[in-house]
C-alpha cells in the first residue's frame, strides 16, 4: 500500500492544542501520553521587535495516522479538528508536491 504522511504548514499553526486533544480522544490516551505533541520554537528576537515563534505538532510513535478513521472514509482526527487547517493527510508523493506549492515553513512527517 502507498505510504501516507502528515503535512504541517507550520507558518499557520497557532498552538491551539486541538490536535493533541483530538488525538487523545481517538487513541484513548491518559495524561502524560500523546499521539501528537505540540513543540514550540521561540519566541526569540531575530531583529529588534521581530520574533521567530513557531509551533510544530509532531506525531509520536503512538500515531497510527488514524487507520480506523481513514478506513471509514474520514480524515485523521488531528487534521479534521485543526483550527488553522494547517495539517493535511495524503500519500507522500502528493504531500511532497503540496509542500513545494506551499513553499514556506512546511514539514512532512512519517510517524
Amino acid at each position: 500500500m502507498e505510504r501516507h504522511g502528515l503535512l504541517i504548514n507550520y507558518q499557520f499553526c497557532s498552538g491551539c492544542h486541538s490536535c493533541e486533544v483530538a488525538c487523545k480522544n481517538v487513541l484513548k490516551l491518559p495524561r502524560g501520553k500523546w499521539g501528537i505533541k505540540l513543540l514550540e520554537n521561540g519566541p526569540w528576537e531575530v531583529t529588534p521587535g521581530k520574533f521567530e515563534w513557531d509551533y510544530v505538532p509532531t506525531p509520536t510513535q503512538l500515531c497510527d495516522l488514524c487507520a480506523d478513521r481513514v478506513a471509514a472514509g474520514k480524515k485523521p482526527s488531528c487534521v479534521h479538528h485543526c483550527l488553522s487547517q494547517c495539517m493535511e493527510y495524503a500519500p507522500l508523493d502528493q504531500l511532497a508536491n503540496r509542500a513545494a506549492e506551499l513553499g514556506h515553513k512546511t514539514a512532512i512527517f512519517i510517524p
Binding site: S18, E20, V21, A22, N25, H80, H81, C82, L83, Q85
Partner: peptide, 22 residues
C-alpha cells in the same frame, strides 16, 4: 462518547477547540 467537528458547518468546517473536544 464522541464529539466530532461538523465539516458541513459553513464557519467552522469541522474544526473544534480543546474545550469542545474535552
Amino acid at each position: 462518547v464522541d464529539v466530532e467537528g461538523d465539516e458541513e458547518h459553513p464557519i467552522t468546517n469541522g474544526r473544534l477547540c480543546v474545550r469542545c473536544l474535552s
